[in-house]
């Protein structure tokens, strides 16, 4: 249930950026949440609709970029993606691997409408 805390942080970051840029409304929010960060986007959307209601972010669309975890095998050099379940190297079976990416948890950018444009 930490998706609520995560969603609240997204809202705070979006509102801060909106204010600094004289936004009248935020229309879109782009998030990158790697598969290794254990966040379920459905429930972020659910909380979002609820907590953004009375703000200039109300109605904004959340866009989720969900990159898989990418693992690199140190024995044979193969890179492979992990979806939901961790597995050894599919090429040589080694567990001598490194996680290269998949732990992202960030707000990339937002789309706003300016005050004077209304």
């Amino acid at each position: 249930m930490h998706e609520l805390a995560v969603t609240e942080s997204v809202l705070r970051i979006a509102l801060d950026a909106a204010e600094k840029n004289d936004a009248a409304r935020v229309t879109d929010i782009y998030l990158t949440i790697g598969r290794l960060s254990s966040i379920v986007d459905d429930s972020v959307q659910f909380y979002w609709d609820h907590i953004s209601k009375e703000t200039i972010c109300a109605g904004a669309t959340l866009h989720f970029n969900r990159p898989p975890a990418v693992l690199h095998c140190l024995d044979c050099g193969q890179d492979y993606a992990m979806e939901d379940f961790l597995e050894p190297c599919p090429n040589c079976g080694s567990v001598n691997i490194r996680v290269i990416s998949g732990e992202e948890l960030q707000v990339d950018h937002i789309d706003i409408q300016r005050k004077e444009e209304q």
């Binding site: 970051i13 909106a18 948890l105 950018h109 706003i112």
Partner: peptide
């Protein structure tokens, strides 16, 4: 007209 605002911030920054 919408304007794109670049952010690139860790979501849990304030906790960190």
């Amino acid at each position: 007209m919408t304007k794109s605002v670049e952010i690139v911030q860790n979501i849990l920054d304030s906790n960190d």
